[in-house]
């Protein structure tokens, strides 16, 4: 029997705070207010969703992954192929992307759970590399290095057609992002989410108090993979194209960087990081089109040297203050 205190603690955790509501209102306000930036905002929504999915395993379950883009890419290719060969209904495509990524996540979770820290990093990296190699070599199915072309989507729910300026695409991505974010948020404030934290902090003790560690980790790994798959599927559908780049190593590294910038273990870190990352990328690539990765690297080095935790706390502080002043996110 869960004690009354525990239940009330969980429900306090689960309550939506004013800052969060203001944040999502601000996000909704970007639809009518920032119409000329919808293409970039779509990208941000997608990579933010991807970063949130990584946060579920890294920040909550403590599984460091160097190959999370395997699921992003699997979702993207699955959605693209589904649209070409089965039906081009967007929502069914998302389900296909999520399902493909979830199956892959479930299958590889057993590999990932076998080893400790370092082995996990290698295995996740290896899985992503194998997938990248498959996508590259199976040119007949995936288009190989040229990417998957000819992904045409039907109107969403049969009514809203994707337009050239990405307005519909943005609203669509934002809504999907919001729905999945609510799901992820619900998961982490559930007893299941708390047990993940216990596993992260001390797997041995978690096992001793009766938490089925491996089952829980498999579950969250699969969920996280499915969400990453949806992010990939969104990219495939809004860009109407799947580039082999969705499986590239730098995508996994970028997602880690976003979490490092925004902080891990509170879900909003992925969003803050995604926004910061995209803004940085835009500024840097205008400034030095070819060499912006140098500065991205420099930022990573600097962040680690200063200390992730300290920066994370700083960001959270600033962010809380910003939201307190009216939600200019």
């Amino acid at each position: 029997m869960p004690s009354k205190a525990a239940v009330s603690r969980l429900s306090t955790l689960g309550r939506w705070r004013l800052a969060e509501i203001l944040f999502w209102l601000a996000a909704a306000a970007s639809v009518p207010l920032l119409t000329e930036h919808h293409l970039v905002l779509t990208e941000i929504a997608i990579i933010a969703l991807f970063a949130v999915s990584l946060d579920l395993i890294l920040g909550y379950a403590g599984i460091a992954s160097l190959g999370h883009t395997a699921f992003f890419g699997a979702g993207a290719y699955a959605a693209g192929l589904f649209a070409i060969h089965v039906t081009n209904d967007p929502l069914l495509g998302l389900v296909a992307g999520a399902a493909a990524a979830a199956v892959l996540g479930f299958a590889t979770s057993f590999l990932v759970l076998r080893g400790a820290d370092l082995t996990r990093l290698m295995v996740t990296l290896g899985v992503a590399l194998v997938l990248g190699e498959i996508a590259n070599k199976a040119g007949k199915i995936t288009g190989g290095a040229d990417g998957l072309q000819g992904v045409f989507m039907a109107p969403i729910l049969g009514r809203f057609e994707f337009d050239l300026f990405g307005h519909v695409g943005y609203v669509y991505s934002l809504v999907v992002f919001f729905v999945l974010f609510v799901v992820a948020r619900r998961i982490v404030v559930s007893p299941f989410g708390l047990s993940l934290l216990a596993i992260r902090d001390n797997p041995l003790r978690a096992r001793a108090i009766g938490i089925p560690v491996n089952t829980r980790l498999t579950a969250i790994y699969t969920i996280s993979a499915a969400i990453a798959g949806v992010a990939g599927a969104l990219l495939a559908q809004t860009a109407q194209f799947v580039s082999i780049d969705v499986l590239a190593f730098h995508r996994s590294a970028d997602a880690l960087l976003m979490l490092v910038i925004g902080g891990t273990g509170y879900l909003y870190g992925g969003i803050v990081g995604a926004v910061a990352f995209k803004v940085l990328q835009e500024i840097l690539s205008v400034w030095t089109p070819q060499y912006w990765t140098f500065w991205i690297g420099a930022i990573l080095v600097a962040i680690v040297l200063i200390g992730r935790q300290r920066i994370g706390n700083g960001v959270m502080g600033i962010w809380a203050r910003l939201l307190g002043k009216g939600g200019a996110a």
Binding site: A64, L66, L121, A253, L256, L257, V260, T293, F294, I296, G297, A298, I299, L300, V301, I303, V304, L305, R308
Partner: peptide, 11 residues
């Protein structure tokens, strides 16, 4: 890992 990935990007 993060630190050395950063170095790789810089290199």
């Amino acid at each position: 890992v993060l630190f050395t990935i950063g170095l790789v990007f810089m290199a």
